[in-house]
């Protein structure tokens, strides 16, 4: 009888529809045994798979830190590379538990998209790259230029707003994927390549001749890049938020990947409490065991170490700390107290 397949399909659909997004992310992650983390599909320094499929990078370390805190294993992460247009839907629908993917925190995303943003991991801004031989020294000289950009990012809107505000025109060439933006700019389709400055620094490395291209001095926008989780699970939001704070706080207190075991017995009560010394309530408050911060730092190091390892001045990206320095060094990175 033909009706059975139809009924089966209907039943399967009904079950699928019933699988509502649960508020118990922590329970799910523990039961599953791994963390599902959304990352960029290949940005040097931020998230890049090697030839064996092992992901590494600045954004990847956040996933690893959370996995270490929650699952006691920094490698228990399944990475999902997501394009600009896929990222929010993947998070909203529960396909991933958290998004750590050079994503700008904005009002629209924080509210209408149903997301919660953890503290900013990287303060960035939109920059412009041009060919050196064009002889351009400012964005204000770019009236009438052809601009390559990727679709579905804050970049597009900043670009239009900035050119509008300065009474300039431009011709946008908009690609789905960052790889094609790069290839088209490299092939000479555009005069200008615009993106977050960190992204430009990363992509310049893979151009045919990196030395031919220069970054213009202007930064036309604020791009605070932060990990995100979905609305409706406060405990999970707290875990991701305070894992990021833990990385920053560790740098401020001089706790590193190398000395975290000694520091656990520190005389400084602040450090001892954060790292879960006897009688510390940090585990109880957040719903994990006492050693969660300890494990996160042992797995990935403190914020400064992560920065130096993946994007800092001694990496090919050569990005200075700048705004991303600790507040004690004149930067913006400021963790809330572990009290």
């Amino acid at each position: 009888m033909k009706i059975y397949p139809i009924l089966t399909t209907a039943a399967a659909l009904a079950v699928a529809a019933g699988g509502a997004v649960s508020a118990q992310t922590l329970e799910e992650v523990r039961e599953r045994g791994h963390l599902n983390c959304g990352v960029s599909p290949g940005v040097t320094g931020f998230s890049n798979p090697d030839d064996e499929g092992n992901w590494s990078g600045f954004d990847v370390e956040v996933c690893r830190a959370v996995a270490a805190a929650v699952l006691e294993d920094a490698d228990a992460v399944r990475y999902t590379p997501l394009s600009n247009t896929e990222r929010f839907t993947a998070l909203q629908s529960g396909e991933i538990d958290m998004l750590s993917r050079t994503t700008t925190r904005t009002l629209n995303r924080d509210t209408a998209l149903g997301l919660n943003f953890a503290p900013v991991m990287f303060y960035d801004g939109q920059g412009f790259m041009v060919r050196q031989d064009m002889g351009v020294s400012s964005v204000l000289e770019l009236d009438g230029a052809t601009v390559c950009t990727s679709a579905g990012s804050t970049t597009e809107l900043n670009l239009a707003d900035y050119f509008e505000a300065n009474g300039m025109s431009y011709e946008p060439v908009r690609f789905d994927r960052a790889d094609e933006v790069l290839a088209a700019y490299d092939a000479g389709r555009c005069d200008v390549y615009t993106s977050d400055r960190s992204g430009l620094a990363a992509r310049r490395l893979v151009m045919t001749n990196p030395a031919e291209h220069v970054m213009l001095p202007e930064t036309i926008s604020k791009e605070p890049l932060a990990p995100a989780v979905r609305h409706g699970d406060d405990q999970w939001f707290d875990i991701v938020t305070w894992t990021v704070y833990a990385l920053i706080e560790a740098e401020e207190y001089g706790v590193t990947q190398g000395n975290v075991d000694e520091m656990a017995n520190s005389e400084n009560p602040n450090i001892a409490r954060m790292l879960g010394a006897e009688g510390s309530p940090v585990g109880e408050w957040i719903g994990l065991d006492n050693k969660w911060v300890h494990r996160a730092i042992a797995a990935v190091g403190n914020y400064g170490e992560i920065f130096e390892r993946h994007v800092g001045p001694n990496t090919p990206l050569e990005i200075e700390r700048g705004m991303n320095a600790l507040h004690t060094n004149g930067g913006l990175q400021y963790a809330m107290p572990f009290k």
Binding site: N84, F88, A112, L113, A151, G152, S153, R174, D176
Partner: peptide, 15 residues
Amino acid sequence: ISIIAGTTLTQTGQA
């Protein structure tokens, strides 16, 4: 796809 399911989708978030 580029305009509606790309730029408009991400700018408004209404997938």
